[in-house]
Design a binder for these strands. Sequence first.
DNA 1: ATGCTTATGTTATATTGTAACACGATATCA
DNA 2: TGATATCGTGTTACAATATAACATAAGCAT
Lengths: 166, 166
Amino acid sequence: MLSKMDAPAAHPDHDHQACIDAALNTARELCREKQQKLTKTREKVLRLIWDSHRPVGAYTIMDSLAEGEQKRIAPPTVYRALDFLLELGLIHRINSLNAYIGCQDPSHEHHCYFLICTSCNLAIEVDPGGFQGAVGKLQKNSGFDIRQQNMELSGMCQHCLETAGD
Amino acid sequence: MLSKMDAPAAHPDHDHQACIDAALNTARELCREKQQKLTKTREKVLRLIWDSHRPVGAYTIMDSLAEGEQKRIAPPTVYRALDFLLELGLIHRINSLNAYIGCQDPSHEHHCYFLICTSCNLAIEVDPGGFQGAVGKLQKNSGFDIRQQNMELSGMCQHCLETAGD
DNA sequence: ATGCTTATGTTATATTGTAACACGATATCA
DNA sequence: TGATATCGTGTTACAATATAACATAAGCAT
């Protein structure tokens, strides 16, 4: 999450293996807490999603799962795993891309705020904190009971801006 | 837009015919300005979208267009009209629903902020103003050049809260 | 072992969206 | 007036994403 801004999570040369390990450990722990099972399939799907900091489509996940296996897994199995992971908050769905990405911090209930680079597809989850004032006002003014927040901010990431000029 | 909050645009008993008329007039004017043509098909699609304050799917629009006609129109025609209207900012796409809704104010370039009722599907476009501070900070901290903002806040609208209890 | 619950396999199909090429209408201009 | 250029639509086929419905298997509780 983009709170400690000195070293953004998905910086091109961060230690990504650490991301994956952390995510899987968190997942295992969360499953223990909630008495849910992180089965082989679910873990494989989660690992594939964490393979990058870019949203991945369900069918891409299917293809990756198929690599080196005799049998292709069918869509429902992937979608079930995705549903499970979404339910637990271990991943998010990026609606504008029909794709899925790992959640930076499944431990607290929180919403889905992302910066998405239209050039390299990088998606960075950001701290929704700064937006809660405005959300609160909106809720008060509109009479809506807001239960889910989803924000997708698209543009160019720093790295792409630097390498591509403008 | 939810700035003048005394009389929310989509209140159950507002004068909806006025909404439709206003939308179509704005559309005609905008097309004149931008030297674009609001053809019969495009106008019909826009009118159908403005038929309610609820997001409508492309295939629903197709079905509506087919009513009372001999020939069904094919998907590409509808999607072309939708693309045209999106391009001009006359409608928005609600990504979480794969559906389209009229834009309250196509005259200024602006982003896509919506309150969506999960019970009755009502979608109210809201003023993004209150969020721009946080967006600006984010942009500065992240190095992203944010070009498009899309926010979908889901929950229960006042009317549903009142009629359904909780 | 027997049954219960949960996870996965399997088949078919629904829903949303596009590619590619053909046709037609309208505008422009020699 | 007719050539031609541009834009919008028609038509067919298909891609991409997601789900329904039912069958099987795997784990676990008595």
